[in-house]
Computed example of a mutant assay.
Amino acid sequence: MTKVRKSYAVDHLKEHLQILIKNYFVEAKWREIRYHPTFEEYMVNRRGTINIRACVAGALMGMEEVREVQAFEQLMKANYKALIACENINGLLDDIVSGEVSLN
């Protein structure tokens, strides 16, 4: 990424991967202490475990059209509500599929 002057993108990707790991840790801690979070608590944490933002950051890293740090950051924030909706939907779908697998 340094060769194509996109080292800033690696920092964004690392940041989102750190958020992912932190949220996995929260889920593990809840499970260990047998804590049942409220729906709101669960959904806030679940959005972080879906990894959509890290995927978006990784995809933008590979795009030649996105060269400037301002453009990258603007695209990462442009559809903030769309990202949240995507994370919510994917999180709930993942939970449904996981529940169906464990029932069989």
Score class of each variant (00 low, 15 high):
Arg47Ile: 09
Lys29Gly: 01
Ala82Gly: 10
Met76Ile: 00
Glu68Tyr: 04
Glu32Met: 07
Lys77Cys: 04
Ala78Tyr: 08
Ala57Thr: 03
Gln74Ser: 10
Val66Trp: 08
Gly58Gln: 11
Arg31Pro: 00
Tyr42Lys: 07
Lys77Met: 10
Asn45Phe: 05
Ala54Leu: 15
Gly58Met: 12
Glu64Phe: 05
Met76Pro: 02
Arg34Tyr: 06
Cys55Glu: 15
Met61Gln: 14
Tyr35Asp: 03
Val44Met: 11
Arg47His: 10
Gly48Pro: 11
Leu60Phe: 15
Thr38Asn: 06
Asn51Phe: 15
Arg53His: 12
Glu32Lys: 10
Val44Lys: 12
Ile33Gly: 01
Glu40Phe: 07
Ala82Tyr: 05
Lys77Phe: 00
Gly62Ala: 05
Arg53Ser: 14
Ile33Trp: 04
Met63Thr: 04
Pro37Thr: 09
Gly58Trp: 05
Asn45Asp: 10
Val56Lys: 13
Glu68Asn: 05
Arg53Cys: 12
Thr38Tyr: 10
Thr49Ala: 10
Gly58Tyr: 08
Gln70Trp: 08
Ala28Lys: 07
Glu65Arg: 07
Trp30Ala: 04
Pro37Phe: 07
Arg31Thr: 12
Tyr80Leu: 00
Gln70Arg: 00
Ile52Thr: 14
Cys55Pro: 06
Glu64Lys: 09
Met43Ile: 15
Glu27Thr: 11
Phe72Ile: 05
Phe25Ser: 14
Pro37Ile: 08
Asn45Gly: 09
Ala28Met: 13
